[in-house]
């Protein structure tokens, strides 16, 4: 996939390698690098995976690996959790005078 100059993209960097990490981090975290993602307008045409420069929305110039073009928000409401249905049903029946536990 190719990004054209001026497109909105997401770039990736390793901020600290595993060796450079702070002394106080737990062992499982120390095994992996500290990584970062920033979005901005790409300054040259490039392919995914290439090292590029972007200008962020605040005007900072940041370099990094191109990972996504027009990065989308994909968070949602997840898969349906049927247990939740039971909570309201039970509470309404208790309020209606039904089952009360002491």
């Amino acid at each position: 996939m190719k990004a054209n100059r001026g497109e909105w993209v997401k770039i990736y960097n390793i901020v600290l390698t595993s060796e450079e990490r702070a002394p106080q981090v737990p062992d499982d975290t120390r095994k992996v690098p500290l990584e970062s993602w920033v979005k901005g307008f790409i300054q040259s045409d490039a392919e995914i995976g290439q090292f590029v420069e972007v200008v962020t929305i605040t005007g900072r110039r940041v370099e990094g690996e191109l990972v996504e073009i027009n990065p989308a928000y994909t968070h949602n409401y997840g898969k349906f959790v049927p247990e939740l249905l039971q909570i309201g049903i039970q509470a309404r029946s208790i309020l209606a005078g039904g089952d009360v536990h002491e």
Partner: peptide, 27 residues
């Protein structure tokens, strides 16, 4: 947290996202 990033961007902010670790303070 992803939703919070969306909301910040909706208000025109730049969001720098990191993996886990106290070195967030370094960034």
């Amino acid at each position: 947290i992803i939703e919070k990033a969306r909301k910040c961007e909706a208000y025109g902010a730049e969001v720098v996202q990191l993996t886990v670790g106290p070195e967030l303070f370094y960034t």
